[in-house]
Computed example of a mutant assay.
Amino acid sequence: MTLARVILFGIIFSINVVSLSALEKITLGGLFPVSNRGEGDIDCGSINNVGLQRLEGMLFALDLINADPSLLPGVSLGARLYDTCKRETYALEQTIEMISYDLQQDSSAYVCPNGSAAVRVEDQAGQSVTGVVGAASSSISQPVASILRLFQIPQISYASTSPELSDKMRFDYFLRVVPPDTFQSQAMFDIVKFMGWTYVSTVAEAGEYGENGIDAFINLTRNSGKVRIMILVRSLISKKQLK
């Protein structure tokens, strides 16, 4: 990791936003849980290493693409990356900040104190976001997708697995590179049937991801037809217990 990149991370943690060079022709947005949820009124808490690694992975991918002129000839990719802090309301604020250029393109409604018409200044941050990578949690990706679709901005998530995000009537600009929870639940159910198990217990992490996944699995066992599968114990483990 270069010294410049380390300094860049320092900027992320202090203002929760990274703005790269303004010379890019295509700017991508990114939403990553670089920080954990803060306590009380504090939005952001300690550093989340997994989110940090994912952010670094996107920057690394952009570096590779920009370094190979055969991939996107004549095109340079840049990014504006934001920390979600694992908090829905904070992530929405960051999303609004990300697309603020699109919200402020029309300056005709503004008048300067001297009465003259306002003229928009094209600064370094003044580039529309072409697409957004993220977010991690489905609970964050859903409201973010609802905002981005209004501006017809594509969104690709690397970790959101909620089946609700497959509804193209609501999330028509949302895509993801991971399967929804229903696929994982179906795979677990198929394994149980293949092994001939009729009594099983479930263990999941408390929260949207774990609970929804187990709910989908239990629904499959209830509609298994001739195969009778009984759930003996259903356990939920909090993140504190995992530690």
Rank of each mutant, 00 (worst) to 15 (best):
I147A: 05
S201N: 05
E205M: 13
D181M: 08
Y173Q: 09
P143V: 02
A206V: 12
Q94E: 08
Y110M: 10
V203F: 12
S141Y: 00
E164D: 15
Y110I: 14
V132R: 01
E88V: 15
L165C: 05
D102R: 10
K168Y: 00
I99P: 11
P113Y: 09
M169Q: 15
Q142P: 06
T161I: 01
G196E: 01
A109Y: 11
V111C: 07
I156L: 11
P163M: 08
A187F: 09
S146E: 13
Q124R: 11
D102K: 09
S116Q: 10
M98C: 07
S146M: 11
S157V: 05
T202R: 02
K193G: 07
Q105V: 08
G207H: 02
P179T: 02
L148M: 01
G207K: 03
T89I: 11
A136N: 07
A109N: 12
S108G: 02
I156H: 00
E97G: 09
A135H: 12
S128Y: 08
D106H: 02
V111I: 12
L148Y: 05
G115Q: 03
Y158D: 09
K168F: 02
A135E: 08
W197H: 11
A109S: 14
T161F: 06
A136M: 12
M98R: 01
A91D: 03
S166T: 13
V111S: 08
I156T: 10
I191Q: 14
L148T: 06
Q94D: 03
R149F: 01
S160L: 06
Q155D: 02
S185C: 03
G131M: 15
S160D: 03
P163I: 09
T198A: 10
E97T: 12
A145I: 01
I140W: 03
S138C: 04
A187S: 10
G115W: 02
A204G: 05
P113H: 10
L92I: 15
A206S: 15
V200M: 05
A125M: 12
A125G: 15
V129D: 03
F151G: 05
F171K: 01
P179I: 00
D123A: 10
R170A: 09
Q94P: 11
A136W: 12
P179R: 07
S139Q: 14
L150Y: 07
Q184A: 12
I191H: 10
K168L: 06
E93L: 12
D172P: 00
L92G: 06
Y101V: 13
Q94Y: 04
F189Q: 08
G115S: 01
S138L: 07
A145R: 00
Q124M: 10
I191W: 14
A117H: 09
T95W: 04
A118L: 09
S100C: 04
A125L: 11
I147S: 07
V200H: 06
R149A: 04
M188F: 08
T182A: 13
S166L: 06
N114L: 06
T130W: 10
R176Y: 08
V192W: 10
V129N: 04
E93N: 15
A206N: 10
R176H: 04
G196C: 04
F151E: 05
P143A: 00
Y101K: 06
Q124E: 12
G196R: 00
Q155I: 03
K193W: 09
T202A: 11
